[in-house]
Amino acid sequence: MSIVHLNSVSKNFGHIEVLKNVSMDVARGSVVSIIGRSGSGKSTLLRCVNGLEPIQGGEITVNGKKVTRDERALKALRQEVGFVFQSFNLFPHLTVERNITIGLTVVQKKARTEAKALAEQVLRQVGLIDKLNAYPDELSGGQQQRVAIARCLALSPKLMLFDEVTSALDPELKGEVLRVIADLASAGMTMILVTHEMHFARSVSHEIKFMNAGKIWESGPPEKLFGGEAETPELRQFVQHHAY
């Protein structure tokens, strides 16, 4: 049963068509990686799923509920969907602990003590329990991104969206973040990853989607797409370019 369902979604910014009739399904518990050139519409696709961008045509349903512009429905949706940004986006004025608990206390109205216990749990999961009282600017990029992941996890999402979460990191810091994501994948979390880490995408994904010019150009299991069986010349060229 699919948790995310896109039915011929189209999206434009003014005159620019960024998504053209995109349809896709993501099954519960599966990991889908979206690859493609910069500007092909990957981020926009993720942002539409989370309701950060309105769509002009088609329909998106998440966990059986249609994504609309209704504020209350969006609030509910976003608690079920975790979004991890390329630029971490931690709140600079809050400690690591408060960054994580703020969604729990303010949005989910949980008690401070319960929230704190949850924060400790997710921080342990991403290996940063010792940074509980640090502020974001005391952390490395990789640590900040792991906190950002923990912040999402605390809300117990049913689906997580990752938008190039390692692109802003120095090479030596990428590994620690990818490891956290891989752990989540093996724990059965449903995830959509936009990534340029082809090795990682291949090892962790059940399905790869290649986006080009606002469309899902080609999709299939990683062995097929990366294993020299790509059907379109665009994907073949793209794969050649990216380390394979």
Binding site: L52, R78, G82, F83, F85, N89, F91, I102, G103, C152
Partner: peptide, 11 residues
């Protein structure tokens, strides 16, 4: 992005 990050956790 700060606003979006707040929105994305359901605020």
């Amino acid at each position: 992005s700060q606003v979006e990050s707040g929105l994305s956790i359901g605020m």
